[in-house]
Simulated assay, not measured.
Amino acid sequence: MKILVLRGGALGDFLLTLPAVAGLREKWPEAEIEMVVGKKFGELVVGEGAIQAVRPIDQPGLASFYARAGKLDAEWSDYFTEFDLTISYLFDPDEIFFTNWKRAGGTGEYISHDPRNPKEAAWKHLAQPVQRLGGSVGDSRRLFGEKIKGVKKTQKRKPSWVIHAGSGGSKKNWPIQSWVQEMEVLAQKHDFAITWLAGEAELGLEGELPEIWKRGDHACVQNLTLPEVFHQLQSSDLYLGHDSGISHLAGWSGAKCGILFGVTDPAVWSPLGERVKCWSRGGRWPEPGEWAEWVDRMI
């Protein structure tokens, strides 16, 4: 049995799909499972007993499958003939991709599922194809790849907090000045060391942080690889962040998480994880001191 899962989107979209993929792994434990996703995401899941291979979704040639009646890329055409089951989460309302998949000689069963606008928890919505196949939602932690297995906790002088005060969408971000103010309140009661995570979307973060919050016990780190970020999260004592891909990664890692939701709905978009708690007030941001009080109760 050989299975292919196609999934576009950002890191959070990918991670929310993993319970479905884990369900495939649990239903067919001996199957070879491959994914067509963002190239960087493969570093998280490729390994024995997890995902056998990842092909980058931006690899040249796949775009030909989105054009009606065009010339199809030969390499991708050959690739699609290898699988017994293909599950596509690509947006394909006119079935152009599916038609071209068949025209290229795609084999086995093909299931297309629209990932947009879920009316329930997103991970449940994305697991519907697996349930139609007689499977169930799986434990996505069984898909830990070789590059992220075996993280060892190190001795630390102070509790380690990791904060990602960004996301891919600016409307989902609380101002960094508000984060700093709340950390100042929490520092009156708790002793901790903060690692501020910054990626491509937070290039100016270090310049916005007051000097006292990025030296000594505190640090700002930028543009780590996803396995490096995963290790930071899994070894932390507490993670705090917005509705973002990194927050989903934190939940998946098993870290203790406090997620701050503004305009988005945690009933739909909350990260999975037994240690994940979400703050939400129907679209508004916390009043001064409110986030610090909530975090204080959580820890």
Rank of each mutant, 00 (worst) to 15 (best):
L4S: 03
V5M: 02
L6N: 00
G9Q: 00
A10W: 03
L15V: 11
A22N: 00
G23E: 03
G23H: 01
L24I: 01
R25A: 09
R25G: 03
E26Q: 14
A31G: 04
A31I: 01
V36E: 03
K39Q: 14
K40G: 15
F41G: 03
G47H: 06
E48S: 10
R55P: 05
I57Y: 03
D58W: 13
P60K: 12
P60V: 03
G61H: 12
L62M: 01
A63K: 13
Y66C: 05
A67H: 14
R68G: 11
K71M: 04
S77V: 14
T81I: 12
E82P: 05
L85W: 02
F91D: 13
F91R: 12
F91Q: 10
P93A: 12
E95C: 11
I96D: 10
F98M: 13
T99V: 06
T99M: 14
W101G: 10
A104S: 12
A104K: 09
G105F: 02
T107H: 12
Y110M: 06
S112L: 14
H113S: 04
P115Y: 00
N117H: 11
P118C: 03
E120A: 09
E120V: 15
A122Q: 13
W123L: 11
L126Y: 09
P129C: 05
P129V: 04
G134T: 06
G135S: 01
S140C: 09
L143I: 00
F144Q: 09
G145K: 08
I148C: 02
K149L: 07
K149P: 01
V151I: 14
Q155V: 15
R157D: 08
K158E: 11
K158V: 13
K158Q: 15
K158N: 15
S160E: 14
I163E: 05
I163T: 08
G168W: 01
G168Q: 02
S170N: 15
K171N: 07
I176L: 15
E184C: 08
L186A: 05
Q188S: 07
K189D: 15
H190F: 14
D191H: 07
A193R: 12
T195K: 15
T195H: 10
W196Y: 10
E200M: 10
E200S: 14
E200K: 14
E200Y: 11
L203R: 15
G204L: 15
L209A: 02
L209R: 00
P210N: 01
E211V: 02
I212S: 11
W213H: 01
R215Y: 12
D217Y: 06
D217M: 04
V221H: 02
V221L: 08
L224H: 10
L224K: 11
E228M: 06
F230G: 01
L238C: 08
L238G: 05
D243G: 13
G245E: 01
G245C: 06
I246Y: 07
L249D: 10
S253V: 00
G254C: 07
A255T: 05
F261M: 04
F261H: 12
F261N: 06
F261C: 07
T264F: 13
L272Y: 10
G273P: 07
E274Q: 11
R275F: 05
V276C: 08
R281Q: 14
G282W: 03
G283C: 04
R284C: 07
W285M: 09
P286V: 09
E287K: 15
E287L: 15
G289I: 08
E290H: 07
W291V: 06
E293I: 13
W294C: 08
R297E: 12
M298F: 14
I299H: 04
